[in-house]
Design a protein around this nucleic acid. Structure first.
Lengths: 123, 123
DNA sequence: TCGTTTCGATTACATCCGTAGTCGTACACC
DNA sequence: GGTGTACGACTACGGATGTAATCGAAACGA
């Protein structure tokens, strides 16, 4: 039972549920209306696939379902981050940071924030 | 001409070419033999798809092709990293680092290395 | 020269993914 | 109580992906 991968489109649905839940399919579609141009049916398909993958569950509310995430965002983010670090940086996180640094991905605030984090970790 | 995405399997092939090139299809398959259990035909299919995507080129050597990467690893890694940061951390890299930190992904050396990097960036 | 091997090109095929449409049914409204 | 409507379930379908098999031609070996 390797944890089923979650696709990009499915991930967008998860983000909605991670922000607020439980929600009906229509609620999720509404929340996504700005970001993605999906029909209600599309959102329902994605919710159904996520249910099959064990990433969301639902409670029946009359004739509708109220969906909630089972998979925690923390876990998802952790898995995805680790995947990237493994695939591209040989499992070491420092090279990732070096890379981001070279890309000038960091703002001054970021730098301060990171420095603070590092300080914390060292103590 | 949105840059064609490179799949996981294709990426494995790219890594080989990034390490050493030009190579024949058979060379690439050999290099991958340990990591993935692929037939030569599979490797050839992947090389062909990568060629179509413009990620690799070849020079003809008699009856064979000698493949070389066109896409630079730097660029690929940059794109993938940015994708992740955008998708999961709102485009900010600091939260990624915070997350990795919480996961204890860093060794003492990593911390020293990162600190050095940050110091460099600030100056 | 003629069969065998080896190439790249073409074709195959199951699964996943993005993006819906359709179907049967339980309610809500008139 | 009939009927439209909204819901989840099921079906659809083209493109991407993983993983090859097959084909036609060229080169090599005997």
């Amino acid at each position: 039972m390797a944890p089923e991968r979650i696709s990009d489109a499915e991930h967008a649905v998860m983000e909605v549920l991670w922000q607020r839940s439980p929600l009906t399919a229509a609620d999720v579609a509404d929340a996504l209306a700005d970001a993605r141009d999906w029909s209600l049916q599309t959102v329902k398909t994605l919710l159904s696939r996520l249910t099959n993958k064990g990433a969301v569950s639902y409670d029946q509310d009359g004739r509708r379902y109220l969906y909630s995430p089972i998979l925690a965002r923390e876990d998802y983010v952790g898995d995805e981050s680790r995947r990237l670090v493994d695939r591209l940086f040989g499992g070491r996180a420092a090279p990732l940071i070096a890379h981001l640094a070279e890309q000038k991905t960091f703002t001054a605030e970021d730098l301060a924030e990171i420095e603070r984090l590092i300080g914390e970790l060292k103590s």
